[in-house]
């Protein structure tokens, strides 16, 4: 009997209350909440219509009417940033949710059923990981053509792999454990073993993986938009705004500074939260 097992108190259900110990994690949480808040109440905040071009006022410096100035089409940068967060955060949330919904069942089946299905899924994953994630996303997005839907499809196609792998690995480990065997001997049907015994074991790791991935997904989305493979103008999106400001980089660097900072702070806070969660939930494999 190991004393450590009795004293050890593992958090079984991750909650925000439990990650409050590290100030830096709290900072990430705080700044992400602000981003989310801005996304939700954004439409009521914007001083100007983010789509109205006003060539007379193009490239204007910051003023009371245009807090961050205007871009090359005379559109309010501040308003575009705020409305753009809807695109960036919304697509990211949708991508992460889709990826989890695809990755968990695939990983569960692969790990638990095994056999041919497992080999097929794993070879497919191996094949897709032969190329770096980002290059593959560019290739798929380029092949499908520029649009937000295609952008999402390409990111999902790249991202499901790591989730499936993580889930499969945990299942392979857990299914041999004695409590699963005991459940089988106790007459548990397969679906019940999966939902009652195996699924709870993968929730924390997947949660950590997802929070750490939010930053990466935002970067991929912004990068693809920067390359012109994502949001179509005049749709405001941070990556696309970076691209819009590129020709004026030498003269008016603020055009790239504002969207760049927005991306930077958002990615940073997501990564801080993810790492705080990982340390707190004591997951070493990710």
């Amino acid at each position: 009997m190991k004393v450590s097992h009795i004293l050890q108190k593992k958090p079984y259900f991750p909650s925000l209350v439990r990650i409050n110990s590290k100030p830096i994690t709290m900072f990430g949480l705080f700044s992400l909440s602000i981003f989310i808040l801005i996304t939700i109440i954004g439409p009521f905040l914007v001083p100007n219509d983010p789509f109205t071009a006003n060539m007379a006022e193009r490239l204007a410096p910051p003023s009371l009417t245009y807090p961050f100035g205007t871009d090359h089409m005379g559109r309010c940068i501040f308003s575009r940033l705020i409305i753009g967060s809807q695109t960036t955060l919304g697509i990211t949330a949708l991508v992460i949710a889709t990826v989890i919904l695809i990755g968990i069942p695939l990983g569960l089946l692969s790990g638990y059923v095994g056999g041919r299905f497992d080999s097929f899924v794993m070879r497919l994953a191996d094949g897709l990981t032969a190329l770096p994630e980002f290059i593959l996303a560019i290739a798929i997005a380029g092949f499908l053509g520029p649009s937000l839907t295609n952008l999402m499809i390409s990111v999902v196609l790249v991202k499901w792999i790591s989730y499936t792998r993580v889930v499969r690995g945990i299942i392979l480990l857990e299914r041999e454990k004695e409590y699963v065997l005991a459940a089988k001997v106790g007459g548990c049907p397969t679906w019940k073993i999966i939902t009652r015994h195996l699924l709870p074991q993968i929730i924390s790791p997947v949660l950590v993986l997802a929070t750490l991935d939010v930053g990466k997904v935002i970067l991929i989305i912004s990068s693809l938009s920067y390359l012109g493979l994502g949001a179509k103008p005049p749709e405001p999106e941070w990556g696309a705004m970076l691209n819009d400001g590129r020709p004026y980089f030498q003269t008016i660097p603020e055009l790239m500074f504002y969207p760049g900072m927005a991306i930077f702070i958002l990615v940073l806070s997501c990564n801080l939260i993810g790492e705080g969660l990982r340390d707190k939930l004591d997951i070493k494999s990710i």
Binding site: E178, Y179, A182, V185, G186, G187, P189, K192, Q201
Partner: peptide, 26 residues
């Protein structure tokens, strides 16, 4: 069956009473 390692043979995420009567539910 009763296994060797009682730590591994009970699901860590279920309260004891649920593990104990699981077979009866099945």
């Amino acid at each position: 069956v009763v296994f060797q390692d009682p730590t591994a043979s009970l699901n860590p995420k279920l309260p004891v009473w649920k593990s104990v009567i699981e077979s009866l539910e099945n």
